[in-house]
């Protein structure tokens, strides 16, 4: 099997999901310059709601085609998450718009604790196995395999990215969002209702997040009340990587992060096998002979890559890959 091509495909899949979640962070940040710290939990709730709906439909034996069942799960998850996104803005962000910057961060942390533990109450402490109803056929391309679920995730993500880009650039409301991101006061003078625009970015981000949650659930076959945390963190890293506040940046950042993570995980064990190293290998001859490999860093270091990339990018290019400006005054 071709490791490189395989990891490329895997990276593209997870990268698309990161990109979709990252769009939620970047849209909110673009408009109010604050991190929506609870966005990861919204994604988790999306996965959980879809899980319940799919389980109910499968359990009832409706005989609907599997793709339709998953679609119904998504259709249920999206409005729930949109409502949560709206509630987040109203409860945690709007009342604190003129407060010190740390205050909304704390309310957002509070909201994410609340969401996480509500999910724990409703769906329990154990990971829930997503029913594998979609027929998951594999296609071979050049020594690697790509599954239907992976194809669906990549295509759906591209579709959503294209849709959002169209919405933001071609519709009147999209123009209002961009104007608000540019300058809230001037936008308000032009007759744009800033409150509505800000709430809309939360709601749109949450809708995208809901779809991403279902994609993660079907891809890994599992949903857990803590899954939003790491996912959200990586997606935020992706948004920063691409240049926060920039939609195209979030998409690029997500894909790049997914690829780096997949390729890093694919090759790290090989690279850090001490037996292959010139000097160190000789010191360990006995162990190498006995065990074959002495791997310093295995694939369990997967999560480190995202953060390392983030730190490196911020150190060398603080405004991200596509970011134009870093506000002088935080």
């Amino acid at each position: 099997m071709d490791t490189f091509l395989q990891q490329l495909i895997n990276g593209l899949t997870t990268g698309s999901v990161y990109a979709i979640v990252a769009l939620g962070y970047t849209m909110v940040y673009g408009v109010i310059q604050l991190i929506n710290f609870a966005h990861g939990e919204v994604v988790m709730i999306g996965a959980m709601v879809a899980f319940s709906v799919i389980m109910a439909l499968v359990g009832a034996g409706t005989g609907l085609p599997p793709a339709l069942v998953v679609l119904l799960g998504v259709l249920a998850a999206v409005p729930v998450c949109m409502a949560i996104g709206y509630a987040l803005e109203r409860l945690a962000y709007r009342p604190l718009r003129h407060a010190p910057r740390l205050a909304p961060l704390i309310t957002a942390i509070g909201m994410s604790i609340i969401l996480q533990h509500l999910a724990l109450l409703i769906w329990g402490r154990d990971p829930r196995a997503f029913p594998q109803i979609l027929e998951n056929a594999s296609f071979a391309i050049g020594g690697a395999a790509i599954s239907t679920v992976q194809i669906a995730i990549i295509l759906l993500s591209l579709l959503m990215m294209a849709g959002l880009t169209w919405f933001v650039h071609r519709t009147k409301f999209g123009i209002a969002i961009r104007a608000t991101a540019e300058d809230v006061r001037v936008a308000a003078l032009m007759g744009i209702d800033a409150n509505r625009v800000i709430a809309a970015t939360f709601v749109i981000g949450a809708a995208l997040g809901a779809v991403a949650g279902v994609m993660v659930g079907t891809y890994y076959g599992i949903a857990h009340y803590t899954m939003g945390f790491v996912l959200g963190l990586k997606a935020f890293s992706a948004a920063v990587l691409g240049g926060i506040g920039n939609l195209a940046g979030a998409m690029l950042g997500g894909i790049v992060l997914g690829l780096v993570e997949a390729l890093g995980t694919g090759y790290i064990s090989e690279i850090s096998d001490l037996c292959q190293w010139p000097l160190v290998g000789e010191l360990l001859t006995e162990r190498c002979a006995a065990e074959g490999h002495v791997i310093l860093f295995g694939s369990n270091y997967q999560d480190v890559f995202a953060f390392l990339v983030l730190i490196l990018v911020l150190v060398f290019r603080p405004s991200g890959l596509l970011g134009e400006r870093v506000a002088e005054r935080a």
């Binding site: 604190l96 407060a99 010190p100």
Partner: peptide
């Protein structure tokens, strides 16, 4: 306990942001 903690965080910041 955690739910109440989360609510307390939100409410405190809401009414005493500093």
């Amino acid at each position: 306990r955690m739910l109440l903690f989360g609510i307390a965080l939100v409410l405190t910041m809401r009414f005493r942001p500093a």
